[in-house]
Design a protein around this nucleic acid. Structure first.
Length: 484
RNA sequence: GCCCCGUUGGUGUAGUGGCCUAACACGCCUGCCUUUCACGCAGGAGAUCACCGGUUCAAAUCCGGUACGGGGUACCA
């Protein structure tokens, strides 16, 4: 039975890198009919952030990465929050102490610091030498005096190796690893101890996590052995780097998962894109439904090197999803966006039917959903701002533009139903009568109607805008030109 | 410093010893379509597969070294 877990620390926002790891976890579980478990690793009280867990859960839910067991829904191995599992860790630590695999240590942070400094000064690798080891009795006495005591793991003098599913055998010399802390002075376990115990107790089959964990895996291997546990399979997935090839961080702009939601990215597009960072199906297909990705996903095809995050390609993929999206759904999400207040990337629109006829006009121009407000803006504003210079193309005289616009309003007045094909025929005829090229007439009209040089096809815009508004805007443009 | 992991056009990937005169996608450029933008379509530029050496009849693919990049070296995860 495949059981994988995503085990974030609630110390900040969920980032793209973490999200990608979660995606691989989830994909692997789904591909193998396994279980996906969410476990919150909140053993660091100093860095703990209350909102973080909420953000993490929201991010995963947004992407549709649903879990089978977790802190919110429980499961057969609850609790799924490490801070609630202290008793379990304590028992296991006691076992370790009893069989001499771990010891109490009374060295103070100051002592540790000076030891480290001395070692660095002498150009020897900074490593703890076990000087603070004390007996259980001494530890108890110290604690009652209010002094700090930790528990350290006694690293055995043996060669350590483990098999990484992506990279193969990895070897470490025991000299590289010093006696590390497994229980902190606040009686919280460290990550190393806690996750080993939990992965075992929760019957995790595959530990899928970021590459940054490779160097500490020997400790985990040792811990598994000392505790008498079996081993999970290790899968260290490549990191995601920023444009400058450094680990993705705040420097690279808003990269928290939820910020992509705010920016108008579709969850299915983000998922698809992220799945392709460090993995590929092998046949060069890129746009894939979630079902397809699950079907094709395998650990063997995960790459062993980091990938640079390219926001431009993400944007392309997002736009591609928007283009092929079901109309009803597109209407829905565009409306959701533009119904937001004006200051919040919306247009304050209350009536959904207003959007339905406009969706086809902006669909292929939309890269991100929150671009909708800009693209739709001129359909809804009452006082369109017009850059007067743009009304006069260089190749056309002021007079002929005025005449063209005037005739246009007259023409519009006569037409009953504004159908694009009909409009186009009539306006082309008008241009011909006035001895103007189509563009010479259409361009000023476009500016008058939209205030912009680019827009959806003119006559579709006219139709959407309606007769009254179109005439009104053209009249206004004529007045502007006359004043020039 | 020490340890570990990597290295195919700017970016993501394909490639698992001969089909590689290196494929696909994003981006970039040109043209077509068109009333503009976008979409779409047709082309193009861009990689001596990090470098050096070895194995082999044959290497992007296997081995070694070097360089470069990344990660780790905490009472953080």
């Amino acid at each position: 039975m495949v059981r994988v877990r995503f085990a974030p620390s609630p110390t900040g926002d969920m980032h793209i890198g973490g999200l990608r790891t979660a995606i691989f976890d989830w994909l692997f579980a789904k591909a193998n009919n396994g279980k996906f478990i969410l476990r919150i690793e909140d053993t660091d009280r100093a860095r703990y952030n209350k909102d973080s867990e909420i953000t993490i859960i929201e991010s995963l839910k947004w992407l549709g990465l649903n879990w089978d067991e977790g802190p919110d829904i429980g499961g057969p191995f609850e609790p799924y929050r490490q801070s609630e599992r202290k008793a379990i860790y304590k028992t296991e630590v006691q076992k370790l102490i009893n069989n001499n695999s771990a010891y109490y240590d009374g060295a103070t942070p100051e002592e540790l610091q000076s030891l480290r400094e001395e070692q660095v000064r002498n150009k020897i690798p900074p490593r703890y030498d076990g000087r603070g080891e004390i007996t259980e009795k001494e530890a108890l006495a110290r604690k009652s005096e209010g002094k700090q005591v930790v528990v350290r793991f006694r690293v055995p003098k043996e060669q350590i190796e483990f098999y990484d599913e992506i990279r193969g055998m990895v070897n470490f010399d025991h000299k590289e690893i010093d006696d590390f802390i497994i229980l902190k002075s606040d009686e919280m376990p460290t990550y190393h101890l806690a996750h080993v115990i939990d992965d075992h107790k929760m019957k995790i089959s595959h530990v899928i996590r970021g590459e940054e964990w490779i160097s500490s895996t020997p400790r985990h291997v040792l811990l598994h052995k000392a505790l008498g546990y079996g081993f999970p399979k290790y899968v260290h997935v490549p990191l995601i780097l920023g444009k400058d090839k450094s680990k993705l961080s705040k420097r690279h702009g808003a990269e928290s998962a939820l910020s992509y939601k705010d920016k108008g990215y579709l969850p299915e597009a983000l998922l698809n894109f992220l799945a392709l960072l460090g993995w590929s199906p092998g046949d060069n297909t890129e746009i894939m439904s979630i079902t397809e990705i699950i079907k094709k996903f395998s650990i063997e095809r995960i790459l062993d090197h980091a990938a640079v995050f390219d926001p431009e390609k993400l944007e392309w993929m997002n736009a591609s999803y928007i283009r092929t999206m079901d109309s009803k759904k597109l209407n829905e999400i565009i409306f959701k966006q533009v119904s937001k207040p004006i200051g919040n990337q919306g247009l304050g629109i209350k009536d959904k039917t207003q959007i339905e006829k406009l969706t086809p006009l902006i669909r292929e121009r939309l890269k991100k959903i929150n671009d909708a407000a800009y693209l739709l803006n001129y359909f809804f504003c009452d006082n369109l701002e017009i850059n007067s210079d743009q009304l006069l193309p260089k190749n056309t005289s002021k007079e002929s533009i005025i005449i063209g616009l005037q005739k246009s309003t007259e023409l519009l007045q006569e037409i009953e139903n504004l159908e694009p094909e009909v409009l186009e025929g009539k306006f082309r005829a008008l241009a011909e009568n006035l001895a103007l090229k189509a563009g010479q007439l259409f361009f000023p009209i476009r500016i008058a109607l939209t205030g912009r040089k680019e827009s959806p096809p003119l006559f579709h815009t006219m139709e959407a805008l309606g007769k009254e508004k179109s005439i009104e805007r053209i009249d206004k443009a004529i007045k502007i030109i006359e004043r020039m």
